[in-house]
Design a protein around this nucleic acid. Structure first.
Lengths: 348, 348
DNA sequence: TCTGGTTGCGCAATCGATTGCGCAGTTTCA
DNA sequence: TGAAACTGCGCAATCGATTGCGCAACCAGA
């Protein structure tokens, strides 16, 4: 097969078919009826286009139409079951609308996040979804000057519609479950500790409230040292859990891990312990991973409905009214050692 | 804040600065020196551009320059630690080169895969990476008529450079390890079974060879029924492992699971068993997941070096010579209950 | 003063598709 | 039979940036 000098354009097809570029354009799109191109002509043109392996240049089309057919999404990190299943849903819904998804990860870095938003604006994405935003206000500012519709997911922003999990509810349920599994007295080692997340994040703060409320309800409001919002880094979490256990002289009675990434770090510590050392501890993790659900020890997991989150986000993007508002989706408590295939068994 | 009628263009900046569009273009890019624009002029123009929140229109630039700054990658599925960590690396290398990554998942569907390739061609991606290709020849054909450089990853194609793991080696090592852990006699239940993957896939077939060679070496070449290449679907794998155990009257002595997705299905079955039922079985999985590494029972895992795979793929794309060739990367055997942070602790 | 080089910048074509408008030829209908 | 309506299609402008080429002003040297 000889390599053609360059990709065929609409002009090449026009030349080959004896039609004008306008006619070719119309014939290849759906509006040939409204431009009154005769059906035999259309078929002839399409035949030639197929023969030449013609494919439209979306840059040119986008330039003219002032829309690109791209949808952007920013996520903190790909390599995580929560966010990668969001990506999967995001892509599925994009396809349904004939849009092409562009997903970029910010590594939870504010500047990187803004850089990505600016880049996506340069590519004229038609809509933008931001999951786990670090600086929602700045993002909204950028989007506004570009006239770009955007929706926050997972972490809300004040400047645009936001769809998030009911973090308070999810955390409260998980905490209640862990308390029920705990047997110890309210000595330091008998307490439950929350680890991971960033306290100023909306999501984490709501979870902490849920955690706190349930403990208070149970008569043991948490001491400050019971809440270790040390961020999302696995290594940092490992460090913190190590320090905690050193202080306490062993694992506490309960452990509420605030994200999968933090849980990876915690696991890095637990791996080094004799199996029986973990037995007395009730462990829960906010977010679900099918493998994490079947560890050596039982783990309660909160499964956020990422599919529903994204579905709702797309709904919001479509609404005429882009007034900021908060929409909450119920998460689900998954019992230990349960493989949950989710509402869409086709994934995974 | 009032919404401007539309995004500022280079012409707006030209008008505001009293310069011509060409000058503005040059001033905002790096070639103002070669066009001999005076430095004060450049600074003034940049100031005004910043003031107006100008951002370049990549569609227009791409159209003119016949390149988009996009780099595409097709993966089978996002929601999987192997592929999502590939995505992470893919994105990191793209950033280093000033490219914007576009990652799409084919769900391992041939038609979907081709649709995606065509779409990415329409968007004029500068390069294309295809991981786990279903129909490499067809992809190469499309890319050739578009004059698009592409590289296959994980599953090779005959029409372009390919970088893959040394599947034979990885499978052989894993098999050897499992054999060493097994105690049973070579009765059917005492045997080791390989489950998951598609036998006609290059990767799977090489792994099966590795598996077979090691068993033959040990004096027990596998019977056909010991190789259950039932695809990648978790549900299918669950079904097959269930059927197998029904036939055997329990778990076999060894289990070589051929992918994380199949492992999810297998796990779905194992979850329902009493813990001690699993004790006598040596289990291994091709591909690594940090959580899977610390299940109730020990699992040997093969970790492919996705970072290195991608790095090598980018190298190949740069080469002048795009002759098809196969490059192999060594995978690593991860002992049970080990958290491996990989060569790049920044991820995850 | 004339030539030749340099500086600083603008004109206009170009990339590939879309689209408002208009034009010739044919049909319809009063 | 003439006007109106319809059919089928092409012309040329347009989207926003890049780039080859050229031009005017200035300076230095002969």
């Amino acid at each position: 097969m000889t390599v053609p000098p360059r990709k065929a354009t609409i002009h090449d097809i026009a030349r080959l078919s004896g039609a004008s570029p306008s006619t070719v354009s119309a014939a290849l799109s759906e509006n040939w009826k409204s431009r009154r191109i005769s059906e035999p002509r259309v078929e002839e043109i399409r035949r030639i286009a197929a023969e030449q392996g013609y494919s439209i240049n979306m840059q040119a089309r986008g330039l003219r139409q002032a829309r690109s057919g791209l949808v952007g999404m920013v996520i903190p990190i790909h390599d995580n079951r929560f966010f990668s299943s969001m990506s999967q849903s995001f892509e599925a819904f994009a396809r349904d609308r004939g849009l092409v998804p562009v997903i970029a990860s910010s590594m939870r870095d504010r500047n990187e996040e803004l850089r990505i938003v600016r880049t996506l604006i340069s590519y004229a994405v038609d809509y933008l979804f931001i999951a786990g935003a670090t600086d929602p206000e700045a993002i909204t500012a950028l989007c506004r000057t570009a006239g770009l519709r955007h929706v926050f997911v997972d972490l809300p922003g004040p400047g645009a519609p936001s769809v998030i999990s009911d973090n308070h509810q999810g955390a409260a349920r998980l905490t209640r479950q862990l308390l029920a599994d705990m047997t110890g007295d309210p000595t330091p080692r008998g307490r439950i500790y929350l680890i991971g997340g960033v306290a100023t994040d909306y999501a984490t703060s709501r979870r902490i409230e849920g955690f706190r409320d349930v403990l208070a309800e149970a008569g043991h409001p948490p001491a400050p040292e019971q809440i270790i919002a040390c961020g999302y880094s696995p290594l940092r979490a490992k460090h913190e859990i190590t320090a905690l256990c050193d202080r306490l002289g062993g694992l506490p009675a309960g452990l509420f891990v605030n994200s999968l990434t933090a849980f990876e770090g915690v696991l890095g510590y637990l791996v080094g312990l004799p199996p029986e050392a973990v037995e007395g501890t009730a462990i829960g993790c906010y977010d679900y991973d099918p493998f994490a659900a079947y560890l050596q020890f039982p783990v309660h997991m909160v499964r956020q409905d990422s599919h529903r989150l994204i579905e709702l986000a797309y709904d919001l993007i479509d609404r005429e009214d882009q007034t900021p508002a908060l929409y909450e989706v119920e998460p689900k408590l998954i019992p230990p050692r349960t493989i949950d295939y989710g509402p869409h068994g086709q994934f995974g």
